[in-house]
């Protein structure tokens, strides 16, 4: 394949990834870099497979996924529900908006110490942290989505005799769903971040803790293996998310590609 054709195809990105990993491997093999903190990629892969085989990696992964899923699900439920109400009822918006605007800009890790005071260092604290951090992007996107719903759609509901709640559920919710999915996608990345941070600050298991402990005991290959596990996890979560979004938003994909034609 000529270079030009390669750059045009989707393969070029994959080729770059392979080239970078090869460079990493070579930098160690040729003796260019001699650092304890920079092991060969192959030894990281070996460590990774060993950790998988021993079940240790999967055990930590399981704990992380469990709190991530719980926190994310709670944040989605709360964010969508409150976002719908705030977007639809001006009274609720006026009532909650100042509080939201004060709480939202606080970087999430800043309230870990407070969360520890209230919830201890167990799972409840970590789930709380994930919920709190994931809640705002979903809330604000849902709220904007509701405000962007065309009045014609609401009036269509009214002329067919729908009440406020029916309009909210049958018209506003689906009409705002593209915005809601945007918020959920942002929060998915945030949830992974907060899981790792919370586990590093106060944990007895999870990938975050695993990486930290490996670093502290100079098991450098294992530390990298933990990071690679997170990369894979993040990638898989996103693929799953995109698949679900595509299925639920089948109508929207068609409608938007039509408009740009």
């Amino acid at each position: 394949m000529k270079l030009g054709a390669l750059l045009q195809s989707r393969m070029s990105g994959f080729a770059l990834l392979v080239a970078l990993l090869a460079l990493w491997e070579l930098s160690v093999r040729t003796g260019l870099v001699r650092l304890v903190s920079w092991p060969a990629f192959s030894s990281i892969v070996r460590a990774w497979f060993k950790l998988i085989a021993q079940g240790e990696m999967l055990r930590h992964l399981g704990h992380s996924l469990e709190r991530l899923a719980l926190g994310y699900a709670l944040a989605v439920a709360a964010g969508v529900l409150l976002g719908l109400l705030m977007g639809y009822f001006p009274a609720i918006y006026n009532f909650l908006e100042p509080v939201v605007e004060i709480l939202r800009p606080i970087p999430s890790p800043a309230y870990i110490p407070m969360a520890i005071l209230f919830f201890g260092i167990g799972d409840r604290m970590k789930v709380f942290m994930i919920v709190f951090a994931c809640f705002f992007p979903i809330l604000l996107n849902t709220c904007s989505g509701v405000k962007a719903v065309d009045p014609v759609q609401v009036n269509t509901g009214r002329t067919f005799g729908l009440g406020s709640w029916q309009i909210l559920r049958q018209i506003i919710l689906p009409a705002a769903s593209p915005y809601i999915f945007t918020g959920m996608r942002i929060s998915l990345a945030v949830s992974l971040m907060l899981t790792v941070i919370a586990e590093m600050v106060a944990g007895n298991n999870g990938i975050g803790l695993f990486i930290l402990l490996a670093q502290r005991s100079f098991r450098v290959s294992e530390m990298y293996a933990g990071v690679i596990t997170l990369a894979l996890l993040g990638y898989v979560l996103n693929v799953v998310f995109v698949q679900i979004e595509r299925r639920v938003m089948r109508w929207h994909v068609g409608a938007t590609t039509m408009e740009t034609r």
Binding site: V152, T156, P174
Partner: peptide
Amino acid sequence: APPFEVVYVFQQYTKSIFPWK
């Protein structure tokens, strides 16, 4: 309030017809 004997047909059918249905 909108009476059930009356239905309003909008000029903007692209919006009035729900794109997700």
